[in-house]
Design a binder for these strands. Structure first.
Length: 352
DNA sequence: TAACCGTGGCA
DNA sequence: TTGCCAAGGTT
């Protein structure tokens, strides 16, 4: 490191003035950010790429332009609009938080980290990010990008997540009083475009003269992370049941847990052991004459992989059993169907 | 603390 | 094909 880190924020902000990404949720330079849009984008961006979030963000702000509008919406409509984005607790918490802001905070978002963290779905990172970006507070923002940038800047070789408090302290030291929101976004843009995970482009980096990791030639190896657990495979059988009107039988999942509150194609439990034919027949919502379809539907969740076999059957004049409902095929787009379920629909409709 | 919680793109 | 990773939070 050839320069005192006192010069680091200025060097980064000068780079950001030229290279900032233009993103739908960013206010134009000089304009005041809308806390609602900042909050909504930060929730969507949790563990989710900028490219994926873009269209979802646009649809949400078009349909719900304010936190009050979102609070007044039925949760089901929010889940339907969120379908495909993943981590569905975010959508449930989004709705609850909107109602808290509307009812308890007089329609205004809290403007400091502690207040923001009292809202469901907002943790350390998101509270700091909103405080800095929307309210110009010099909060220490630490996301995956900034963990990587900072661990390289200071050549931190201890593994994540244990070393996180150290990184947060270092970020707090270099966060400026002026333009803290731009500083945080600049660090994230730098991590996304220059200080990339496998291939840091140190030749292009505005901070290379401050970077101990680059000086030591170990930047690409940082940050170190604890080993990850193996991902088991679970198995199940899903039931594609259609009636004489061409409708399909659906079911709402339990409120919490995996794919909580979303709509599903009925199925057996998903376990590491494949269900027996008998157990599957007993788990089906109706007792029918089943035809197993060709092939399997595979899907990968965070902590397990899933392989589903599909059993198909037709039924005439049957009332939907408790907890299930009929849905016309052309209405499937209006259901809160997560990606796995859309994958099943596609598999069935192309196999038949 | 560590397990749980989605999805899609890319090397 | 497999593992890694992305503007993490909750319990």
């Amino acid at each position: 490191m050839t320069k005192n880190n006192r010069d680091l924020p200025g060097a980064l902000l000068a780079w950001y003035n030229r290279h900032a990404r233009r993103l739908p949720w960013r206010a134009p330079p000089g304009a005041k950010p809308d806390p609602y849009r900042v909050w909504l984008s930060e929730i969507m961006l949790q563990q989710t790429t900028v490219v994926t979030v873009g269209p979802y963000f646009e649809r949400f702000v078009a349909r719900w332009p304010s936190v009050q509008a979102l609070a007044a919406s039925p949760l089901e409509e929010i889940l339907t609009e969120w379908a495909g984005l993943g981590y569905y607790a975010r959508a449930r918490n989004l709705h609850r938080a909107a109602q808290m802001v509307t009812d308890k905070f007089d329609g205004r978002f809290p403007d400091d980290e502690a207040g923001l963290k009292s809202l469901p779905g907002i943790g350390d990172y998101t509270a700091a990010a909103i405080a800095a970006i929307a309210f110009d507070r010099p909060a220490a923002v630490l996301d995956g990008n900034i963990e990587r940038v900072t661990s390289r800047l200071y050549a931190i070789t201890e593994p994540l997540p244990g070393v996180k408090p150290v990184l947060r302290r270092l970020v707090a030291e270099i966060t400026p009083r002026q333009r803290p929101g731009d500083f945080a976004q600049a660090m994230m843009d730098l991590g996304a475009m220059v200080c990339q995970p496998a291939r840091p482009r140190c030749l292009l980096c505005p901070l290379v003269r401050f970077c101990e990791g680059s000086a030591q030639g170990i930047a690409a190896e940082l940050p170190r992370k604890a080993a990850k657990k193996a991902r088991p495979t679970r198995h199940g059988i899903a039931f594609w049941i259609t009636d004489e009107q061409g409708r399909v039988l659906l079911r709402k999942r339990p409120e919490k847990g995996l794919l909580g509150s979303m709509t599903e194609i009925p199925s057996t439990d998903w376990r590491e052991d494949k269900p027996s034919q008998n157990a599957a027949a007993n788990a089906a919502p109706l007792a029918l004459d089943w035809s197993p379809l060709q092939g399997r539907v595979r899907h990968v969740f965070t902590h397990f992989s899933l392989e589903l076999e599909i059993w198909s059957a037709d039924v005439e004049g049957s009332a939907a059993p408790e907890g299930t409902f009929w849905c016309r095929l052309d209405d499937l787009g209006n259901q809160a169907l997560p990606s796995l379920m859309r994958k099943i629909v596609k598999h069935v409709l192309t196999a038949k």
